[in-house]
Design a protein around this nucleic acid. Structure first.
Length: 972
DNA sequence: CGGCATACG
DNA sequence: CGTAT
DNA sequence: GCCG
C-alpha cells in the first residue's frame, strides 16, 4: 500500500502546486512530502510548505468534486482522469482514503519569502583536508555565477539546481519530496589552521540561519596513532563543544532547532584512505581521549569543588558521565552527526554524492520558516497539539492581548474547559449496566471537529482577531504577512476559496489560531494543564511562572538541552566522595554489617517492608522511575539493586561511607546519600518533579497497558494529558489501553488488605463450585504484608493435575457470568500448550503432566454486592485481579515466583543460574545443561494444611538458600 | 568491558 | 511492546 | 550504576 501511494500522491500534489502558482505562491515541502515544481520559473513571492498534505487533498478532492467544479477541479482534471479512470487505481484511492481518515495532520504551511537570510552551511576542517577544493567543486557544480568575497572566511553563494539534485539521487523518483529544498544557500569556508579556529567557531555562533556544518577530514591521515587523527579529533571536539553550547542555550534566538553536521571523509579514492565507518569509530575513540584530557585540565586548574562540577558540565562534550564518546550522544542537543566518504579530486572525477544528499537534507524547508498553515483542523487545542508535535512553539496572541488588557482568566482556560466537557459528552466510554462496553465506535473525530468549528469556536474570538490584525485586501494581506511576524493557522477553505477566486483572499473568517513564535524550548505554552503554578491560568503568566519555577537553578543557569529533551541518562560524572573526618565517618563506629548484607543477591537476605531509611529509598525510587521514563533500562536495574540493598540494611544510615559498604552501592550512591543528608532531598528528584514532560510521561505510564515506550510515543504526538489521548487518539488505543484509561483513577486506588482477602475468598469459593478441592494462596504484595495493594494476585492450585489443566477459562468465565469480572484483559495458557509438546529431546518427565499449566488471567474485578436501596448503580470501584493457576507439583515454585518483589525475583534467577546453572521461573526449575525439568518439591507429600508452605520452603532448600518469609522479600 | 530475569500475549 | 513477580 |  505504501508503495502504491507515492506516485498517486504526487499527482495530486502537482495539481495543488499548479494552483498555488496561479495564486502567486510557490510550493515547498515539509516533512519530506512534497512535489517537484512544474516549471523552472517560479514566482517567488511566497513559498508553501506541505505536511502530509496528500491526505487532505484526497479527501478534499472527493468531497468537492461535485460541489464546486471550480478552478481547482478544472486544473487538475487531467490528473483526475489519470487517477480515477483506470479502475484498479480508483480502487486503490478508495482504500487509501479509508485508511487515512484517522490520520490527524492536515496542514499546509506557507510563508512570505525574502524575509530570512539565505541558509548557510559552514565548511570547517583542518588545513589540508581539501575544504577549499570542495568549495570550488560545489561552485563548479552550480550553474549560476558565484561571487567570492575577498575577506576570510571565504563565502560563496551557491544554488542547488534541480537537475543536479535529481542526478545525485538517481534512484529516487523525480517527484520525490526530498528534492524540495532551499535552492540558494551560502557556503562559508573557514580557515583550517589551528591559530585561526576561533574564526570558524565564531561563524558557528554568529551565523544566522545556519543549516549545517561540514567538517572535512582527510581520510588518508586518520590511521591509528597518526598526528592527523589527533589533530582532527581535537578540532572536531572543540567544534562540537561550540555547537553543543549553542544548541544548549536554546533561547538565545540564534540557535537553530537542529544543527546537523556532516563529517566528510575526503580523498576516499586513495587506497590509503580509511573507510567511512572506520573514520567514524576512530574519531569517536580519539574524541573520547580528548574529552578526558580536557576535563582533566580543568580539574587540575584547581577550582573549588562546587563550582567545578558546573564548570565542567559546560565543557563536557556529549553525555554526562558517559565513558565513551559517541556521536549519537550529540542527538540530545539536536545535533545529528553523519559520516560519509567521498572525494573532491580523483581519476574518475569527483565523488560527492553522499555529501550532496546530506546537504539537501540540511537545506530542506521546515515549519519554523513558515508563517501560515492551513489545515482541516478547526479548533485551537487541536492546533496547539499539532504544533507541539512539530516542535513549533508559539504563544497565542489572544492570550497576549489578554495580558495587555490585564488579567481576566484567560480565554484559553475557558476553551480548555469547554473541551473537557465536550469530551464527557462525546462519551467514548459507555456503560451499559451489568456489562461494560468500551465503545470502539470510530465515528470520525475529524468530521466532527471540522463541522463544529463554525458554530463553536468561531464567533467572538475570531472577530476580535480580525479587527486587530486582519487585512482586508489581498495585497494588504501580503504586506501584513511581512510586517507581523506571527504564525497563523487558517482553515483550508481559505485556500480553496482563494483558488476559486483566483487571488489571495483576506483571511477573516478563516483564522483558527494565531501565535507568536517563541525561541525558548518552553514546552507547554499553548495548552496544558501540567504544572499550574499560577491559578490565574493565563497562558503567558503560566509560561513565565513555568520558566521561573522550573528546574533547579543549576539547570537554568547552564540552560542545557537536557532540560527539554533528556533522551539519555543525564547524570553528572561521578566525583570522588569528599572525605571529611568526623566521628560519624569513622568506620569503627558503624553498626556491624550483618553477614547477609555481604551477599550479592537480594534473595539471600531478609528485606523487610519498611526500613529506617525509607525516606531516602523513596527518593531513589523516584530516580529509578525517571530512568524508566527516559528509557534507561540499565539505570533501572542499577537503582533496583541498590535500593534492595539499602532496604535490607536494618540501621539508619549516618554517613556516606556507611553506604559504601553495602552491595550494589558505590561512590555515586554515597554521593546521593550525602546530598540527601545535607539537603533532605536529591537534586535529580527535584529536577524531575519540576519537569513538565516527566509529569506527563508519568501520568501516561500509569495507564494500564501503557509502558514507558508508549508513554513517550503519546508525548511525541503532542498529547499532554489523558484528555488529549481520549480526544485525539482513542481509536488508536488498544482495547486494554482503553480500559486502562477508563479506570485510570480506580486502578490507582490502593486496595486495603481486607478487601484483598475478600476477593481471594470469592475466587476460591467459585473455583470450588466448579471443581471441589481447590486451595488458594494470595500472593503478590499482599503476601509480603503490604497493608494496601495495587492489585490482587490469587494463586489457585489443586492436588489433582487434571483439575488445574486448562482451568483458567473455566474460572474466568464463571466469574464473568456472575458479574465479579467485568473484563478479561489477558489470558495466558501457553504452559498448557507447552505441556503437550515438552522438550522432546530429553527423557520424559516424571509421571503425569508435569509442566502442564501455569496459566493466568489478568482481569478487571468489581464487587457485585451493594445496597440496591441506596444506589441505582453498582458504586464499587474496579480492581485489577490476577488469577494464577499452578499445578500442584510445582506449586512451591509458583508461590515463590509470585511472592517476592521484582528485584528478589531477578536476583533469585541470577542466583540459581550462577550457583546451580539452573533456570527458574514460576512454572518450575530446569537444568540449563540439558533442559531437564527438576522436581524440587516432590519430597513433600500429601496436600493437607501447610503443605504449600512446606513445598515453598523445600524450593529454597534445594536452591541452597536460607528460608525467607514472604514479608522478608520486600526488595521494592 | 560484558552482563544485568524470565516468561507469555 | 505490553504484562506479571 | 555496579560487579567480576
Amino acid at each position: 500500500m505504501q508503495v502504491a501511494t507515492q506516485p498517486l500522491t504526487n499527482l495530486f500534489l502537482r495539481a495543488l502546486y499548479y494552483n498555488v502558482q496561479r495564486l502567486g505562491l510557490h510550493i515547498h515541502p515539509y516533512l519530506q512530502k512534497t512535489i517537484r515544481p512544474l516549471s523552472a520559473s517560479q514566482p517567488s513571492s511566497c513559498s508553501l510548505v506541505l505536511g502530509y498534505l496528500q491526505l487532505l487533498f484526497w479527501s478534499r478532492v472527493n468531497d468537492r468534486e461535485s460541489v464546486h467544479p471550480s478552478a481547482l477541479m478544472s486544473s487538475i482534471k487531467e490528473w483526475m482522469h489519470l487517477v480515477f479512470d483506470p479502475s484498479p487505481l480508483g480502487l486503490a484511492i478508495a482504500i487509501i482514503l479509508a485508511l487515512s481518515i484517522p490520520i490527524f495532520l492536515h496542514t499546509v504551511v506557507f510563508r512570505a519569502s525574502g524575509l530570512t537570510t539565505l541558509p548557510t552551511i559552514l565548511l570547517i576542517g583542518p588545513s589540508g583536508s581539501g575544504k577549499t577544493a570542495l568549495l570550488t567543486l560545489f561552485e563548479r557544480e552550480n550553474k549560476p555565477a558565484t561571487t567570492h568575497t575577498s575577506q576570510a572566511p571565504l563565502t560563496a553563494e551557491c544554488s542547488l539546481p534541480v537537475d543536479t539534485v535529481a542526478a545525485s539521487n538517481k534512484y529516487r523518483s523525480v517527484n520525490d519530496p526530498t528534492n524540495q529544498v532551499h535552492k540558494k544557500f551560502l557556503l562559508v569556508d573557514t580557515p583550517g589552521h589551528g591559530k585561526l579556529r576561533h574564526h570558524a567557531f565564531q561563524n558557528v555562533t554568529n551565523t544566522s540561519n545556519l543549516r549545517g556544518v561540514i567538517f572535512v577530514v582527510d581520510a588518508t591521515t586518520l590511521g591509528a596513532g597518526e598526528e592527523g587523527l589527533r589533530e582532527a579529533a581535537d578540532y572536531l571536539h572543540d567544534l562540537l563543544i561550540v555547537m553543543q553550547k549553542l544548541m544548549g542555550e536554546g533561547k538565545s534566538s540564534k540557535a537553530p532547532k537542529e544543527l546537523p553536521i556532516l563529517i566528510a571523509a575526503n580523498k576516499m579514492d586513495l587506497f590509503t584512505a580509511l573507510p567511512a565507518a572506520l573514520v567514524k569509530s576512530s574519531l569517536e575513540r580519539e574524541i573520547t581521549k580528548v574529552r578526558v584530557s580536557r576535563s582533566k585540565g580543568l580539574l587540575d586548574s584547581g577550582v573549588g569543588l562546587g563550582d567545578e562540577q558546573d564548570e565542567e558540565k559546560d565543557d563536557w562534550l556529549g553525555e554526562m558521565g558517559s565513558e565513551d564518546f559517541k556521536f549519537s550522544q550529540m542527538e540530545e542537543f539536536d545535533i545529528s552527526v553523519e559520516v560519509a566518504g567521498g572525494n573532491v579530486l580523483g581519476a574518475d572525477g569527483a565523488s560527492t554524492e553522499s555529501w550532496w544528499r546530506w546537504k539537501i537534507g540540511a537545506l530542506r524547508y521546515n515549519i519554523h520558516e513558515a508563517e501560515i498553515a492551513v489545515g482541516k483542523i478547526g479548533r485551537k487545542p487541536r492546533v496547539a497539539m499539532e504544533l507541539r508535535r512539530l516542535k513549533m512553539t508559539t504563544i497565542d496572541v489572544e492570550s497576549l492581548e489578554k495580558e495587555g488588557e490585564k488579567k481576566e482568566s484567560g480565554a484559553q482556560a475557558v476553551s480548555r474547559k469547554k473541551r473537557k466537557t465536550r469530551d464527557g459528552k462525546r462519551g467514548k466510554i459507555e456503560i451499559s449496566e451489568g456489562k461494560e462496553v468500551i465503545n470502539l465506535d470510530g465515528s470520525s473525530t475529524e468530521d466532527e471537529t471540522a463541522s463544529e468549528t463554525e458554530s463553536e469556536d468561531g464567533g467572538p474570538a475570531r472577530k476580535k482577531l480580525k479587527s486587530s490584525t486582519e487585512p482586508s485586501t489581498p495585497s494588504q494581506a501580503k504586506k501584513d504577512l511581512e510586517k507581523i511576524r506571527t504564525f497563523k493557522v487558517l482553515k483550508v477553505d481559505w485556500y480553496y476559496d482563494s483558488v476559486k477566486a483566483g487571488k489571495i483572499l483576506p483571511m477573516d473568517g478563516y483564522l483558527v489560531y494565531e501565535g507568536r513564535p517563541v525561541q525558548e524550548p518552553a514546552q507547554d505554552l499553548i495548552s496544558t494543564n501540567a504544572s499550574p503554578p499560577s491559578r490565574g491560568s493565563d497562558i503567558l503568566a503560566r509560561a513565565v511562572a513555568d520558566a521561573k519555577s522550573s528546574p533547579s537553578t543549576a539547570y537554568m543557569k547552564h540552560g542545557n538541552a537536557r532540560y527539554h529533551k533528556p533522551t539519555k541518562s543525564v547524570t553528572r560524572p561521578t566525583h570522588l566522595l569528599h572525605q571529611t573526618t568526623s566521628e560519624h565517618d569513622d568506620p569503627e563506629k558503624f553498626p556491624p554489617l550483618p553477614d547477609y548484607l555481604t551477599k550479592l543477591y537480594s534473595c539471600e537476605r531478609p528485606t523487610p517492608l519498611h526500613s529506617p531509611n525509607d525516606e531516602f529509598i523513596n527518593l531513589l525510587k523516584k530516580i529509578k522511575t525517571a530512568r524508566q521514563l527516559n528509557s534507561d533500562a540499565i539505570g533501572v536495574r542499577a537503582y533496583s539493586t541498590l535500593i534492595a540493598s539499602i532496604a535490607a540494611y536494618p540501621y539508619k544510615l549516618t554517613s556516606p561511607t556507611e553506604v559504601l559498604r553495602l552491595p550494589g552501592c558505590d561512590q555515586k550512591t554515597a554521593l546521593l546519600f550525602q546530598q540527601y543528608q545535607q539537603t533532605g532531598t536529591l537534586a535529580e528528584v527535584t529536577d524531575v518533579e519540576n519537569d513538565a514532560r516527566m509529569k506527563v510521561l508519568l501520568d501516561f505510564y500509569n495507564i494500564w497497558g501503557v509502558g514507558d515506550h508508549t508513554a513517550r510515543e503519546f508525548y511525541s504526538r503532542g498529547w499532554r494529558d489523558r484528555d488529549d489521548i481520549i480526544e485525539y487518539g482513542w481509536e488508536r488505543l488498544t482495547r486494554v489501553q482503553q480500559i486502562g484509561v477508563k479506570y485510570y483513577d480506580e486502578f490507582l486506588t490502593p486496595i486495603p488488605a481486607a478487601e484483598v482477602e475478600d476477593i481471594g475468598a470469592v475466587v476460591l469459593k467459585e473455583a470450588n463450585e466448579i471443581i471441589p478441592g481447590y486451595q488458594m494462596v494470595i500472593v503478590g504484595g499482599h503476601r509480603r504484608g503490604k497493608p494496601f495493594s495495587g492489585d490482587v494476585d490469587i494463586m489457585l492450585t489443586h492436588p489433582d493435575p487434571e483439575a488445574t489443566l486448562n482451568f483458567v477459562p473455566l474460572i474466568t468465565d464463571r466469574l464473568e457470568e456472575l458479574g465479579w469480572v467485568t473484563n478479561v484483559l489477558q489470558h495466558s495458557l501457553a504452559n498448557s500448550a507447552r505441556g503437550q509438546a515438552p522438550v522432546a529431546y530429553k527423557s520424559p518427565r516424571p509421571s503425569g503432566s508435569g509442566f502442564d499449566t501455569m496459566d493466568k488471567a489478568l482481569v478487571v474485578w468489581r464487587d457485585i454486592r451493594y445496597d440496591k436501596a441506596k444506589h441505582e448503580k453498582n458504586p464499587n470501584i474496579h480492581r485489577r485481579v490476577d488469577i494464577i493457576i499452578t499445578p500442584w507439583k510445582t506449586a512451591g515454585c509458583g508461590i515463590l515466583g509470585w511472592s517476592g518483589g521484582t528485584t528478589f525475583q531477578r536476583d533469585l534467577r541470577r542466583y540459581v543460574r550462577k550457583v546451580k546453572d539452573w533456570k527458574f521461573d514460576s512454572s518450575g526449575m530446569r537444568d540449563r545443561r540439558d533442559g531437564e525439568w527438576l522436581d524440587l518439591e516432590g519430597s513433600v507429600v500429601g496436600w493437607g494444611e501447610g503443605k504449600l508452605r512446606e513445598k515453598e520452603m523445600k524450593v529454597f532448600e534445594m536452591c541452597g538458600l536460607a528460608w525467607r518469609e514472604p514479608w522478608e522479600r520486600c526488595t521494592g
